[in-house]
Amino acid sequence: MEELKKKLKEQIIEALNLQDTKPEDIDDNAPLFGEGLGLDSIDSLELMVLLERQYHIKVEDPREGRKILQSVQSMAEFIQSKQPA
C-alpha cells in the first residue's frame, strides 16, 4: 500500500504538472481539492484519465468519482480494491 501511494503521488505530480510539489509534500489523507493541493474540476477529469491509463480502471459513476478522488489514501484504496487478489 505504501509503495502504491508513493507511486500514485509521483503520477499525480507528473499528470497535473505540479512543478513545485514533491511526493513527500502530499499528505496521504489531505483533501486533493479545495484545500490541500487546491485542485479543480479539470484536474478531477485528468485524475480519472490517470486511473484509466495507468491502472486500467474506468470510473463510470461521477458520484463514485467524488469519493475516490478525495485523497491519495482513498485513491490508493480504490485501486487496490480493483486489483486481482
Binding site: I42, L45, E46, V49, E52
Partner: peptide, 13 residues
C-alpha cells in the same frame, strides 16, 4: 496512442 479512449481534457480544451 490511446485508440480514442482515456483522453486528457486539457489539450482538447
Amino acid at each position: 496512442q490511446y485508440k480514442e479512449t482515456a483522453l486528457n481534457p486539457t489539450p482538447f480544451i
